[in-house]
Amino acid sequence: MTVGPIALDAMGGDFAPLEVVKGAVRASRDFGIDVVLVGDESVLKAQLAGLGEKESERIRIRHAPEVVLMTDAPSVVIRGKRRSSIRVASNLVKRGEASGVVSAGNTGATMVAARFEFGLAQGVERPAIAQVFPNRKHGTVVLDLGANVDCKVGYLVQFGVMGSIYASIVFQKRRPKVGLLSIGSEDTKGNEFSRNVLRAMRDEPAINFVGNVEGRDVFKGDVDVVVCDGFVGNIVLKITEGVATMVVGMVQDALSSEVLSKAGAALVRPSFRRFKKQMDYAEYGGAILLGVNGVCVICHGGSKARAIRNALKRAHEFAVSGIVQQITEKIEASRTAS
């Protein structure tokens, strides 16, 4: 499937615009992806020049004079900064001038811009943020990671459908296993809401539902998709990031301590580098906002060039896969069946 360029919010993120522009250049060079850099035109031209690059067919610039700050309210993209880089980038997707949008800027503003410009995919009640968590096998898709702190039963069922489609693309599995995050694997565990969701998900033919799963199951690799509301999901995400940082730091300290000889440390360092790479969010690029009528990848605010490069690759892959159309078809089939 032939797709257009990916619109990149070049002004969003802690290390924008330099690291964002670097990531765009690398994605274009390494993967042949066309990118539209959205932001202050004079600034972006200077950044490209500093990297020995210039505007071309592969990397174009679309001027956007305003920037949404991390401290801004998400609604500012509608009520205030209508010419902000994330709003303009999202509008390019709406107009068919780009096949997806990537941003490392204000997460709330990115979601609002995408939903305002794209709208929801047909039949979808609420969008959800999904991301691949590392495990000992291939990875686990977890959603929602913060788009919806209060949910209805039907929302989580749809999250299961959308997460299943996402997992089938990234893991190349025909029928990914879907679990519901709870405090125990037994059907009787959880509160009244989670038990109602459990029953509804068992009745959903569009997913390969395996029942309740616990927090530790996210990292075992026995289930492909874990569904939860955005309040719980965001806590899971932040705890995971914190633990990963701590573990990597502890291993680094151990390798540099006097306990290990230099020869012993040299032997284990290649394995540690592989482990560190597996735990690094930059490898996965970013999270995808599922359920909107377009491809939207949300990066960590601290993303540098490698993360941006990989996020652009993911956005391009999702556009090629027709993920929005797949979600629309599955949701419509589910609604018809019920």
Rank of each mutant, 00 (worst) to 15 (best):
F116L: 01
A128M: 12
A128S: 15
V153A: 09
L120P: 03
V153H: 12
A130M: 11
G119I: 03
G139R: 11
N148D: 08
G139L: 11
F116Y: 13
A114F: 06
A128I: 14
V124I: 14
V132S: 01
K137Y: 07
E117P: 00
R115E: 13
C151P: 02
R126G: 06
V132T: 11
A114E: 01
L143W: 08
A128W: 10
L145N: 05
K137A: 06
V124D: 04
Q131M: 12
K152I: 05
A147Y: 00
Q131I: 10
A147D: 03
D150P: 00
L145G: 04
D144A: 10
G119D: 00
G123R: 13
R115T: 15
L120M: 14
V153I: 15
P127A: 10
T140S: 12
V153F: 11
G123I: 15
F118V: 03
A121K: 04
F118D: 01
F116C: 00
A128H: 13
V141Q: 03
Q122V: 08
A128E: 10
Y155P: 00
N148H: 10
V124M: 02
Q131Y: 08
C151Q: 06
H138R: 14
V124Q: 04
V124E: 04
G119T: 02
F133N: 12
G119K: 01
C151Y: 05
D144Q: 13
V142A: 03
G139P: 03
K137V: 14
H138A: 14
Q131W: 07
I129T: 00
Q131N: 06
F116A: 11
G154D: 13
A114S: 13
D150S: 08
G146N: 06
F118W: 02
R126W: 09
V132Y: 02
G154Y: 04
F116S: 06
K152L: 09
E117W: 04
H138G: 01
D144E: 10
T140E: 11
V149A: 12
V149Y: 02
L143E: 09
R115K: 15
T140M: 09
D150N: 04
C151F: 04
Q122W: 06
Q122R: 14
L145S: 03
P127I: 13
F116R: 01
G154A: 07
D144W: 12
Q122S: 10
N135P: 05
A130D: 06
H138F: 13
K137P: 00
L143R: 11
Q122D: 07
K137R: 14
G139V: 10
V124G: 04
A121E: 04
F116G: 00
E117H: 04
V142Y: 04
R136I: 15
G123Q: 12
R115N: 14
R115W: 08
V142K: 05
V142Q: 03
E125H: 08
Y155G: 00
H138Y: 07
G146M: 09
V141F: 07
F118T: 02
T140G: 12
P134V: 07
G154N: 14
G119R: 02
Q131F: 08
I129D: 00
F118S: 02
C151N: 13
N148E: 09
N148R: 08
V124S: 04
G139Q: 10
G154E: 15
N148C: 09
P127F: 12
G146E: 05
V149P: 02
E117R: 00
F133C: 08
A130W: 08
G146K: 09
A147E: 00
Y155R: 00
A147C: 00
A130V: 14
